[in-house]
């Protein structure tokens, strides 16, 4: 006799807000900071296209405390993005075999994070150097 009458438990609607999934949701939200910074640059491009006056207004905005605070927040969120981005990186690639064993994912994360730091640093230094 087959008495199979499986019971489906409804999944909680707010799983994304609860541990251990909360960290994932926060990580995804750091993507908003990336787009937010894109929006700041887009506003700059728009102002530029509208002529010198509107560009001057954009520069004044960049110099305002509000903008500095905004950029500090964006920087913090983007740094969090950098950290988590390279934590996932080894998950998205095949195992890297060195000799006979896979390279530890922690090592891949660390090397990639240092490389990213070097990229940003190089960008800043080159910009400062070229502009001088």
């Amino acid at each position: 006799m087959n008495e199979s009458r499986p019971y489906r438990r409804p999944a909680p609607k707010d799983w994304w807000a609860k541990a251990p999934y909360r960290a994932y949701t926060v990580r995804e939200m750091s993507g908003l900071a990336v787009a937010g910074y894109g929006a700041v640059l887009f506003a700059g491009l728009y102002s530029l296209s509208q002529g010198p006056e509107s560009w001057a207004a954009y520069v004044r905005f960049l110099q305002s405390p509000v903008s500095l605070l905004l950029h500090a927040a964006l920087l913090a969120a983007v740094l969090y993005h950098v950290k988590t981005w390279f934590q996932i990186l080894p998950k998205t690639m095949p195992k890297l075999i060195l000799g006979r064993a896979p390279v530890a994912q922690r090592t891949i994360t660390r090397v990639a994070t240092i490389f990213a730091g070097a990229c940003s640093l190089a960008l800043v230094l080159i910009t400062l150097g070229v502009a001088r």
């Binding site: 110099q63 950029h71 920087l75 950098v82 730091g117 400062l128």
Partner: peptide, 25 residues
């Protein structure tokens, strides 16, 4: 994601801080 991870912090430092504050530029 990769572009912003590699250059995002550097770009924000330049356009958000160094340039408007006139530091080093």
């Amino acid at each position: 994601g990769m572009l912003s991870a590699l250059f995002g912090p550097g770009l924000i430092l330049i356009t958000g801080f160094f340039a408007p504050l006139g530091v080093g530029l």
